[in-house]
Amino acid sequence: MSNSPTFLALGHVTRDIQLDGSFTLGGTVAFAALTASRLGLEAGIVTCADAELTTQLPSLLPGIQLTVQPSIQSTTFANRYQEGFRTQYLYSRADSLELSSVPPAWLEAEIVLLGPLAQELDVDFVKHIPRRPGQLLAATPQGWLRRWESDGRVWPTPWQDAEQILPLLDVLILSHDDLLPFADGDRTEADALLARWSQFIPLLVATDGRYGATLYQAGQPQKFAAYPVQEIDPTGAGDVFAAAFLTHLFWHQDPAQAVNFANCAAACSIEQPGMLGIPTLAQVLARMQS
């Protein structure tokens, strides 16, 4: 492997507790880096985890370059789905990620994805990431849209730092559903917030499940249909979408084509449980052609 990955994901990996008490590896950075790797890029992760999980990561993330900032505990979630809705609990949280934990050479990556899950990347972290021409700096902000109670129950919270962080980014990718709690469930109001945010950033993409995705450029929306699927497990679909979009954008510099490609990759990913559904480039292209 090279010293510097082409695709770098920053944020917490997670233990996702299952109904039987076992865990599966989760987190935006895990799904996104594996997606980039299966699409053909050298991928790396900088994360924070306890000693036991750290020893397991190389086997759980084969082919991924890893830098782990030590922590007494790892971020641990439990996700419960019922009729398409998720109730989430945060049982433990790893330390916040420090920029000094990122190998300097890795900051030369062509694509850098910020994938916070539990407020582990603060404004100063983002502000001090060194930039270079041609690099794509992107974020999936779900971890900036969460708060949790003493019992661990996770609730939505407004993204207070949005207008500080957005101008620092090239791409923001998020789920339309993440904004509905702040719009009283009104999709029109959520769309208005997306349009406002898109004024601060070159590219914004909002995924919307079976409704597809919307690309915003300078406040102007362009909608893309979803691919038909037989849904088995939606976990990580948004992260697969984000990595596929950024990978295609890096290759071809065409945001519209990148959304269609990412829609297809996300559709593939939810037809098998967990990370088993993350597709290869050949699988995505075959599905698009069919």
Rank of each mutant, 00 (worst) to 15 (best):
E98K: 15
L121M: 06
A265I: 08
G84M: 02
G277M: 04
P181V: 13
W144Q: 01
T47K: 04
L34Y: 01
G84A: 02
P58V: 06
H176R: 15
A36R: 05
D239Q: 12
A192K: 14
S2P: 11
V29Y: 08
Q69P: 09
C48W: 00
L193A: 13
L121I: 15
Q88N: 13
Y89S: 13
L34I: 10
T67L: 00
G152Y: 01
D233E: 11
A213V: 04
A51R: 12
V29M: 05
F250G: 01
L136C: 12
D20K: 08
W144N: 00
R86P: 08
D95S: 14
E42F: 03
V102M: 11
V126F: 02
V205L: 14
H248I: 00
L172T: 09
H12E: 05
I173M: 10
N263S: 09
T235H: 04
V29A: 11
A266D: 12
G219C: 11
H248L: 06
T140C: 13
T247V: 15
P221S: 03
I72L: 14
T54K: 07
A244Q: 05
H128S: 10
P279F: 12
M1L: 09
W251G: 02
G236R: 11
P202K: 11
L53Y: 07
P70L: 06
Q230K: 15
G238N: 09
L60M: 13
Q257K: 14
L172N: 07
V284H: 02
V284G: 02
P255T: 06
A218C: 12
E189Y: 07
G236H: 04
N3P: 06
E231S: 14
Q272P: 00
Y89C: 01
A225G: 12
P202D: 15
M288H: 01
D233P: 08
S100D: 14
L19V: 14
L145E: 08
D254V: 07
Q65C: 03
N260K: 13
A244W: 10
R80P: 00
E83R: 13
S101E: 12
D208L: 10
T280Y: 02
Q119L: 07
S71H: 07
A43Y: 03
L204K: 07
F182A: 10
T76V: 04
I129A: 05
L168W: 01
Q142R: 05
A218Q: 14
A258G: 01
F241E: 02
V205R: 12
R93F: 01
P70R: 05
Q73F: 13
Q69A: 08
Q289P: 00
Q222K: 15
L99F: 05
Q73I: 12
H248Y: 05
Q253L: 04
A36S: 03
L25P: 06
D233F: 06
